[in-house]
């Protein structure tokens, strides 16, 4: 796996954090993301937007990270939303039925707005 992976964290104010993913998220790189989200939860930051604009690939291990944290995040009153999925990743998510458990938006602004004006 020589394709690089990066997960950058950016606070957006109002307790919202954006995780920008880049490259290949697989079994080798998933622990990085895991540590990042665990760190956010530790400081009670549970309003998270995962920006996938530059994410090229996601494996089951990568998806597993989100599955592991979605329940604790929601239990703490927060949410984890996805935005800007490329075609391939959108297809994978759709195939697995992830749209039934995660809030997935086309653009970043939509995800941000969804946090600011909570829908029912």
């Amino acid at each position: 796996m020589n394709q690089g992976f990066r997960a950058d964290l950016e606070p957006k104010g109002k307790g919202i954090f954006v995780i920008r993913l880049r490259g290949y998220l697989d079994a080798y790189t998933a622990p990085q993301l895991d540590t990042l989200i665990a760190g956010l939860l530790e400081q009670n930051s549970n309003r998270i937007i995962v920006d996938c604009a530059e994410l090229d690939y996601i494996s089951s291990a990568g998806l597993g990270v989100f599955m592991a944290y979605i329940e604790p995040i929601r239990a703490a009153g927060g949410d984890l939303k996805f935005c800007s999925l490329n075609e391939r990743i959108a297809m994978i998510m759709d195939m697995l039925g992830f749209q039934h458990i995660f809030h997935i938006t086309e653009h970043f602004d939509q995800a941000l707005r969804a946090f600011e004006i909570p829908s029912d």
């Binding site: 599955m67 195939m95 697995l96 039925g97 992830f98 039934h100 458990i101």
Partner: peptide, 15 residues
Amino acid sequence: LSTRGIALGLVSTER
């Protein structure tokens, strides 16, 4: 054949 469905282990059996 892209019929509607979700993987096992993501939601409750009812869902």
